[in-house]
């Protein structure tokens, strides 16, 4: 059925490259943080809160503007514990552009106990990240003087995993 293509398909030896830039830094996007203000206020007091959807009871931490499951605003503020678990993690390699030195860094998704969503966070530099595992219990290490932004959750420290030896027996 198919006929062979007849037009010339010889290589184009000379192509031109044109430099181009996409000036993203000139963009001024507006991103509303209104729904996060109570959260930031509490962070400054070293307290954790999340929002719960009144329709499906999902607890969002960090708070979200919209619950995607129900298409309503989750507006019930609830208390959130300082303890968390590793939801998933990987190890990335960060290269210092000046020295060329490569640093191994774990990137973890943590899920606070009693919440339904996970978010990206830093692990304590003291943890040997080769020993990290999914379900590892963690606790928040606060910044010494909280400023009311996400940087106040400086990193996560390990907690004693009381059930670890029991799991090994299985």
């Amino acid at each position: 059925m198919s006929k062979k293509m007849e037009y010339d398909r010889k290589e184009y030896d000379v192509t031109r490259t044109m430099p181009g830039n996409w000036y993203l830094s000139s963009y001024k996007f507006r991103y509303s943080l209104d729904h996060l203000q109570p959260w930031f206020k509490k962070l400054k007091e070293k307290k954790l809160v999340g929002t719960q959807c009144r329709s499906c009871n999902t607890v969002f931490f960090p708070p979200r503007l919209v619950c995607g499951y129900c298409l309503v605003k989750p507006d019930l503020w609830v208390d959130v514990r300082e303890t968390a678990q590793v939801a998933t993690f990987n190890i990335t390699y960060e290269k210092n552009p000046q020295t060329g030195e490569v640093v191994e860094k774990p990137v973890v998704c943590v899920r606070h106990d009693g919440t339904d969503t996970a978010f990206l966070a830093q692990l304590s530099p003291e943890i040997n990240f080769r020993e990290t595992y999914v379900g590892m219990p963690l606790k928040v290490k606060w910044r010494d003087e909280p400023e009311g932004n996400i940087g106040d959750l400086e990193y996560y420290e390990p907690l004693e995993d009381e059930a670890k030896d029991l799991r090994k027996e299985e």
Partner: peptide, 11 residues
């Protein structure tokens, strides 16, 4: 996400 993902971690 510009608030939670881009500034914190290498994603």
């Amino acid at each position: 996400d510009p608030t939670f993902e881009r500034p914190i971690a290498l994603v």
